[in-house]
Write a protein that binds this DNA or RNA. Structure first.
Length: 244
RNA sequence: GGUAAAGUCUCG
């Protein structure tokens, strides 16, 4: 089994999916029982290949073999569905996970919340944020940033500001990604002053990055503020944070 | 034996 597992994992990492799956079949044919590690490797491989349906099928077979999937196994399938615009299926796996007695961790909640955020399904994103907190986990910067994205997609800038205020109160304050997400929201709404205010904060404390610059340039260009766009572009070049 | 996974721009 161990030798097979090493090879299955190697094929999976090399993205040789058919080889890995073929090895899995020959294991069963030769009477070698795939273990939890075998299934884990294959499921994670299929999820990375954006084939969550096939991963789910393997999960079923794993359970039939009376093996107990662990958090990372469920987590891989959930994040694959969430990134697939299939948040509902992600939730199905989440339920299956809980029924199996495995407690979802903050990454699982992060995946689900972001899946809903991506589709601007605010109420459902909030629902899972509440479930996360009810389970004893703390809303972290990542899920709150996803929430800002959800509001951003719905153009609810006031609600997004409230979330951002909450992040500001966290220790260490907003990270670059959270701030960039707010800049992006303002950029999409043409709120130049608000965007610039956050951008200036980032510049002031050295947290600015290439995405910050790119987003500000996008905003200025869309607003027809070509001088400002050019100035930011030159500053970005000089900072070495942009490649083009 | 393995020891992962969730959030921001543009283009794909």
């Amino acid at each position: 089994v161990v030798e097979y597992n090493v090879m299955v994992k190697a094929y999976g990492k090399a993205k040789l999916y058919d080889k890995a799956l073929g090895l899995f079949e020959s294991m069963r044919a030769s009477g070698t029982w795939p273990d939890e590690c075998t299934y884990n490797s294959l499921i994670q491989m299929l999820c990375a290949a954006d084939l969550p349906d096939r991963a789910w099928e393997l999960l079923r077979r794993m359970k039939e073999a009376r093996l107990r999937p662990r958090c990372e196994t469920f987590s891989a399938i959930i994040s694959s569905y969430a990134q697939n615009s299939s948040a509902d299926k992600a939730v199905e796996i989440y339920r299956e996970m809980k029924l199996s007695g495995v407690e979802p961790n903050e990454v699982v909640y992060g995946s689900i919340i972001d899946g809903f955020a991506e589709s601007a399904r605010i109420e459902e994103a909030l629902k899972y944020l509440r479930k996360m907190e009810a389970s004893g986990l703390t809303a972290n910067q990542i899920v709150l940033t996803s929430l800002i994205k959800a509001y951003s997609k719905a153009s609810c800038w006031k609600e997004a500001q409230e979330v951002y205020t909450k992040i500001k109160k966290m220790d260490g304050g907003p990270d670059t990604i959270a701030s960039n997400c707010m800049i992006n929201l303002y950029a999409n709404l043409g709120m130049v002053n608000e965007a610039k205010s956050i951008f200036d904060d980032l510049r002031g404390n050295g947290q600015v990055d290439g995405v910050s610059y790119a987003t500000m340039m996008y905003l200025y260009k869309n607003m027809g503020l070509l001088d400002e766009a050019t100035a930011i572009g030159q500053e970005a070049q000089a900072s070495g944070l942009l490649t083009d």
